[in-house]
Design a binder for these strands. Structure first.
Length: 338
DNA sequence: CGAAAGACCTGAGTGC
DNA sequence: TGCACTCAGGTCTTTC
């Protein structure tokens, strides 16, 4: 259940290994992990093979690797390669300057991992779905294994289009690349995350004021604010002393501001703890390893005393999952100015 | 447009 | 031992 901090750990671990790398080959072990790939744009394998990766970018929980497609001419005489990708609409247009910029888009879903490995690493991973074979000038040959038990995650090749606001699309540590202000079409509807310098606070407050539904539903709506999942929603609501079902529109501007601050605080804290957990050489780019159970105040703490007031935390059904809250600190309150 | 419910997935755990 | 059931949950789609 990787949320923003976990995905950022993955992005940061991947970035130095994939930036500038050539995709020498790809193995699709389970096509279900391509469910977000639109076959009309071409076969996944042929689009990715020969690509030169330019960066690793993240917005919310989405991750993408902008790349320059292989030049058809350069690839032709090198070695027969497998020309299996010659579908009906074969012409990919000469990979010149007018070729559409593309990106490899990834979402980890609930159980997805991007494991960075040496080429000789045993391929015995039970849930390995897709493997990328890379050649990197500095690191030599590498492998990225997309491992995903529950297959809620996926990889896809998608077109990059300019961002609606003209700002940098997501976080990558580099705002100068030609790809920086472009976003994959399937990520374009996702709001910026609250740590993004271009996050639109006014739009966030306006969305809250407009919604009659519970505040937790709004926090989980990636079209309003991205990067938050069940865990950090519960944590932020606990910190802001808000009941998950408190109607969003009933929350005063002042308390909404406190909530946004709490969200940022929770995400930054998790990021700080997660950022220290990987080793320098071959980073274990593992989305699940970054969970910081010791610092959780509400999520998964059913029956344990609220760290603030000592009242046992309760677990309640919520959208086919669970909410965890302190029944004393986080009460439903009638709409009224603060 | 907003809101809510269902679908997609697998494996661990529980009760009988 | 085995079977049925519950739970974990992010995002997309459908329905109202």
């Amino acid at each position: 259940m990787p949320e923003l901090p976990e995905v950022e750990v993955v992005r940061a671990g991947l970035a130095p290994a994939v930036t500038g790398a050539l995709v020498a080959g790809v193995e699709v072990l389970d096509a279900r992990s391509l469910k977000r790939h639109d076959p009309a744009s071409g076969a996944f394998e042929s689009l990715v093979t020969g690509a030169r990766i330019e960066a690793a970018v993240r917005r919310g929980k989405f991750l993408w690797l902008p790349f320059r497609p292989a030049s058809p001419v350069a690839g032709a005489d090198a070695s027969g390669a497998d020309a299996s990708g010659s579908d009906a609409s074969g012409s990919t247009g000469g990979a010149g300057a007018d070729a559409a910029p593309l990106a490899l888009v990834g979402h980890l879903g609930m159980s997805g991992q991007m494991l960075l490995r040496t080429p000789d690493h045993p391929g015995d991973d039970r849930h390995a779905r897709i493997r990328l074979h890379l050649e990197h000038v500095g690191h030599g040959e590498l492998r990225v294994d997309f491992v995903d038990q529950r297959i809620f995650g996926s990889l896809a090749v998608d077109r990059l289009v300019p961002t609606a606001d003209g700002e940098v699309a997501g976080f990558s540590g580099d705002v100068t690349g030609a790809w920086a202000r472009s976003i994959p079409t399937q990520v374009a509807h996702i709001a910026r995350d609250p740590l993004d310098p271009a996050f639109d606070e006014r739009a966030f407050f306006a969305a809250l004021a407009r919604r009659a539904t519970g505040i937790k539903r709004v926090l989980l709506d990636q079209g309003v604010v991205s990067g938050i999942g069940n865990i950090y929603a519960d944590e932020a609501l606990w910190a802001a002393k808000l009941h998950p079902e408190q109607p969003a529109a009933s929350i005063s501007r002042r308390r909404a501001r406190e909530l946004l601050d709490a969200v940022r605080d929770v995400l930054l804290k998790a990021l700080a703890e997660g950022g220290t957990s990987f080793d320098a050489q071959y980073v274990n780019v593992n989305g699940a390893s970054g969970y910081f159970a010791h610092s959780l105040n509400a999520y998964g703490q059913t029956g344990r005393p609220c760290p603030r007031c000592g009242t046992p935390i309760v677990r309640e059904p919520f959208m086919n999952r669970s909410s965890h809250r302190c029944p004393r600190c986080q009460r439903l309150r009638v709409a009224r100015g603060d």
